[in-house]
Simulated assay, not measured.
Amino acid sequence: MTTFDDREQAYESKFAHDTDKRFREGARAVKMVAQWAAEMMGKADEEADAYVTSLLTADFFEAGKEDVVRKLVADLGPRADEATVRAKLAEALAAAAKQIAEG
């Protein structure tokens, strides 16, 4: 293998690692926000777990988190506005990144 091939393989490995890390951070953040929303809606135990699963599933409909924000705003109704949901999601993304970085 040449140095160029080694460098290319290293970049590909880093890209794969970074992509996986972002996916795990996003999924963990959505789970945190879903648990927060379930608590606000008075869901407990199995209902809360089902809501978390439904929100994680909603996250796969389109790239980014807009699908999650729309679902949360619709589900929470007057309990939380869009700005509150976005702030909570940003907070959860930061917390998830920190948790994953710490191991």
Rank of each mutant, 00 (worst) to 15 (best):
K21Q: 06
K43C: 08
L93D: 03
A97C: 08
A63R: 07
M32V: 01
A90M: 02
K98D: 15
T84L: 05
D45S: 06
I100C: 03
T2M: 03
A95H: 07
A97W: 11
R7D: 08
T57S: 14
R28L: 13
M32S: 03
A87Y: 01
A90T: 10
E46I: 09
A95S: 05
E46D: 14
K88M: 09
D49C: 02
W36L: 00
D6F: 06
P78D: 15
Q99L: 14
K31C: 02
E47H: 15
T3S: 02
K21S: 01
E47S: 10
Y51S: 04
Y11H: 09
G64T: 07
E8G: 01
A95I: 03
T57Q: 11
A29E: 10
R70A: 10
K71R: 15
A94K: 15
P78I: 03
G103R: 06
A58F: 09
T2P: 02
D6L: 00
R24T: 01
T19Q: 07
L76V: 10
A38I: 07
K98Q: 11
W36H: 04
A63W: 12
V69A: 08
E82I: 02
D75F: 12
D6Y: 00
G42I: 03
G64F: 07
A96T: 05
P78T: 08
A96P: 04
K31N: 08
M41P: 14
T2H: 03
D59Y: 15
Y51T: 10
G64V: 05
T57D: 14
K65E: 10
K88Y: 08
E91L: 05
A101P: 01
D49N: 09
R28E: 14
G77R: 13
W36G: 00
G77M: 12
E12L: 12
D75R: 04
A27T: 09
A58I: 10
A92I: 05
F61H: 12
F61P: 00
A74Q: 13
K71N: 12
E12A: 14
E62Q: 07
K31T: 14
Q9T: 02
R22N: 12
L56A: 09
V52A: 02
H17M: 05
T53M: 03
A83F: 07
A29W: 08
D20P: 01
P78W: 09
Q9Y: 01
D18H: 07
A27R: 14
A87F: 03
A37K: 08
L55Y: 08
A10M: 03
A10L: 05
M40S: 14
A37E: 05
D59P: 02
L56M: 11
R24K: 13
R70F: 00
S13T: 09
L55G: 00
V52P: 15
Q9W: 07
F4R: 10
H17V: 00
R79N: 07
R70I: 04
T53F: 08
A101C: 00
A16I: 01
A38G: 15
R24P: 01
E12W: 13
A37Y: 03
A92F: 06
D18Y: 10
R24D: 11
K21L: 13
A38T: 11
R79H: 07
V68T: 04
E47Q: 13
K71Q: 15
A16C: 06
L55I: 10
R28C: 05
E91H: 11
M40I: 10
F60S: 06
A96W: 12
K65Y: 09
A97Y: 15
T19W: 12
A29F: 11
A83H: 11
